[in-house]
Nucleic acid binder design. Structure first.
Length: 681
RNA sequence: GCGCCCGUAGCUCAGCCGGAUAGAGCGGCUGGCUUCGAACCAGCAGGCCGGGGGUUCGAGUCCCUCCGGGCGCGCCA
């Protein structure tokens, strides 16, 4: 009974790992974030000295903007300790604390809130001057983010897009806040999925490796699409002829041995499909630093090393009894805690081969630099922007490679269906005594992208009556049921092109297409980010292809409109004013008395606070929501206050500055989301 | 059977790890382009936050329980 209670009180830290990185100290110069930090310290010191209050002080955002910029509910907490009404305590604090730098007023509200009003002119003056550049500490604390991880045996689909966009955006958020990040994309080029496609080429199509290589090199053949269909054919063939599964087994063994025609064909297929995936992801701005491949994990005997560690430290043992007799297993207690009825997990099969989890433990050890050995590397390709991606190799390369791995913190972007296996991987680290690394192995879990029944029907799939009733239908690579990533991107570009062409018919087609592509990428990335990670996306073309309302193009449009103000300004032969010289504290004070201006400015100044919160919560959707809300606020402002026709000189300069500032903050936020802004829309 | 996730407006989803009067988009209805771009803006309608207990000064948020839905629990990956 006691055990049961303990297990509840200390649940296994699983999918939703929260909390910041205690070891990383960021020097924040961003105005809002810094002021909030300063105020937290001032109040914590005061409450500690005055009341002996030691719990953390945390501010909230008041429900109504008229209540001020920050609210402090601490009087409610103090009420119990002091046995006095919260309102009286709040009044006492406000009376006694005196002047607080950066704050123009403290007010007691409701039954005991303390509301803070910022000194608007002082706050804005810091923004006009431009806050000093942030100085992040040299980050030797590397964060590894592993994402995409598509089996290289068929074209990428929309589920893979969600993974890549989530992972890539989280990387951008981390980098925007000064973290040192390495992006890994694991390539399982020796697994059953590749073996199945090889079986298809060999047994169903009678192809030689040379013929497959020719197909892969033929630009008129969409090789990844061809494999998509072939994989579905092979799966169907297995279903009809179960004895054909022997082909898979044989292929798998030959691929693992690494020589012969089958292994050669597997390398041709997986390399070609991997390049197709890299090209697809590049279309939406997703890149990688290094591609660790399973073939090198095998050739370089990573598993043998990991196995010795696990065996020596007693993390696994040789089972002699029961159904797992002859296997090396991890005891259930290692990963299931006190739960009853869990089976131990097989790590090495009775035939001596290692399971997926075993290989993943070895890979995870390498990421932390705990394995004691490393890959060799060679440069694979250079992206059009000059960034280089490396791939693992089993022999030394000609060029010296950067040091990969040795992360202090590792995010594995993997869908939530694999949380059980991710728990076992972390348990493996813990069982080896790497408690801290287990703690820093974060399963960045997200729910799947499924298809709405309508969407599946549009794709020409026959659904059962039961499937039609459901809210969504699961994508299935084996059945070939899904929306291919490139098809969706193409559709988005075509639709955007129609819109662009109708609005700017005079523009050259290639220019129109470039703009349409930016809009399409914005729509796609925003669509994948607007949902929080644990929402299942029931994919629907109508929603995904929308450019209105809460979408990427809506945010892009706000930036385009803002820019057009300054383009018009130039066309009239005017210069952008020298804001810092023109807008002194008194002028800012006068203009910011107007509430809508202050609210917009305040909101736009919170980008860094939003990014930090997204890191803390592990939730890129927060940044997407913020971008939309800021764009919405700007569109409202844009509509309400014509700037260029503003007669009052001071107000006109102020409005120009405000529009310019909001635009720059919006562009920066969009950049973090991997979305660029077209010249026009 | 066990574990995890979800249930908030007609639909799709937010709600900052307990705070003040419940938020947005889409869809519906009504208005707004001779203005810095209407991929926009304004307004209206639409909610016992699945049900019930509990903890708390305070619960959509935490705990328990029930109902409904999803995903896992292989010597597959």
């Amino acid at each position: 009974m006691l055990c049961r209670v303990r297990a509840r009180a200390f649940p296994a830290p699983a999918a939703c790992k929260r909390g910041g990185a205690p070891g990383i100290v960021i020097l924040v110069n961003e105005v809002f974030h810094r002021l909030e930090q300063d105020l937290t310290r001032i109040f914590a010191d005061y409450l500690s000295a005055r009341y002996g209050w030691s719990a953390p002080v945390s501010f909230e955002q008041p429900r109504q903007p008229e209540f001020g910029e920050l609210a402090l509910p601490v009087a409610f907490q103090l009420a119990r300790q002091l046995r006095r009404p919260p309102r009286a305590i709040a009044e006492e604090i406000v009376r006694e604390i005196g002047a607080v730098p950066g704050v123009s007023a403290l007010e007691v509200a409701g039954s005991g809130y303390i509301n803070l009003r910022f000194d608007r002119a002082r706050y804005a003056r810091q923004l006009v001057e431009g806050p000093p550049p942030e100085t992040f500490p040299p980050s030797d604390e590397k964060i590894i983010v592993e994402h995409t991880n598509i089996n290289p045996n068929k074209a990428a689909h929309i589920g893979h897009l969600r993974n890549a966009v989530l992972g890539d955006t989280f990387v951008r958020i981390l980098r925007a806040r000064g973290r040192n990040v390495e992006v890994q994309n694991y390539i399982d080029n020796t697994g059953v999925q590749v073996a199945d496609v090889v079986v298809g080429f060999q047994r169903l199509l009678g192809k030689t490796p040379e013929e497959v290589a020719a197909m892969a090199a033929d630009p008129s053949c969409r090789f990844d699409y061809f494999c998509w269909d072939l994989y579905a054919r092979v799966s169907a063939h297995y279903a009809e002829h179960p004895q054909a599964l022997a082909w898979r087994q044989q292929a798998l063994e030959e691929i693992e041995r690494g020589h012969g025609d089958t292994a050669r064909m597997a390398a041709i297929v997986s390399d070609a499909v991997m390049h197709a995936h890299l090209a697809t992801m590049w279309r939406i701005g997703v890149t990688y630093d290094v591609l660790p491949r399973e073939s090198e994990i095998l050739r370089l005997q990573f598993w043998a090393t990991a196995f010795e560690l696990l065996r020596e430290r007693g993390a696994i043992y040789y089972e002699t009894q029961g159904k797992n007799a002859g296997c090396w297993v991890m005891p259930a207690a290692a990963f299931a805690g006190e739960q009853e009825g869990e089976d131990s997990k097989v790590i090495v099969r009775s035939n001596g081969t290692v399971t997926y989890v075993g290989k993943d433990i070895a890979y995870q050890l390498w990421k932390f630099g705990l394995l004691g050995k490393d890959f060799y590397y060679r440069p694979l390709m250079v992206y059009p922007d000059g960034h280089r991606v490396w791939v693992t190799a089993d022999t030394p390369g000609d060029e010296p490679a950067p040091q990969f791995g040795h992360g202090k913190r590792v995010y594995n972007v993997i869908d939530s269906r694999q949380s059980y296996l991710q728990d076992i991987v972390a348990a493996g680290l813990r069982a080896l005594g790497f408690e801290k690394e287990a703690e820093n192995s974060i399963h960045f879990a997200y729910e799947m992208v499924a298809l709405s029944p309508r969407c599946a029907a549009e794709l020409g799939f026959d659904l059962t009556a039961e499937e039609r009733r459901r809210a969504f239908v699961e994508v299935s690579g084996r059945k070939g049921l899904g929306v291919k990533a490139d098809d969706l991107i193409d559709k988005l570009i075509e639709k955007a092109l129609e819109e662009v062409a109708s609005r700017h018919p005079e523009d050259p087609p290639e220019k129109q297409r470039a703009v349409a592509t930016q809009i399409a990428v914005g729509a796609l990335r925003y669509f994948m980010l607007k949902y929080t990670r644990n929402a299942i996306i029931a994919f629907d073309f109508q929603e995904a292809l929308s450019f209105e309302g809460e979408t990427g193009p809506y945010v892009q449009y706000a930036v385009v409109r803002a820019r057009s103000i300054f383009r018009k300004l130039e066309e009239r032969g005017e210069q952008r004013p020298d804001y810092a010289a023109e807008l002194d504290a008194a002028a800012l004070e006068r203009q910011l008395r107007h509430e809508p201006f202050w609210q917009l400015l305040l909101m736009a100044s919170k980008v860094d606070a939003v990014l930090e919160r997204a890191i803390l919560m592990g939730e890129p959707a927060h940044v997407a929501k913020y971008a939309f809300q800021l764009a919405q606020a700007f569109n409202n402002f844009y509509h309400e206050y014509p700037i260029l026709s503003e007669p009052d000189r001071e107000r006109r300069i102020f409005l120009l500055w405000l529009a310019d500032y909001v635009r720059s903050q919006l562009e920066r936020t969009l950049g973090v989301l991997g979305i660029s802004c077209p010249e026009y829309m």
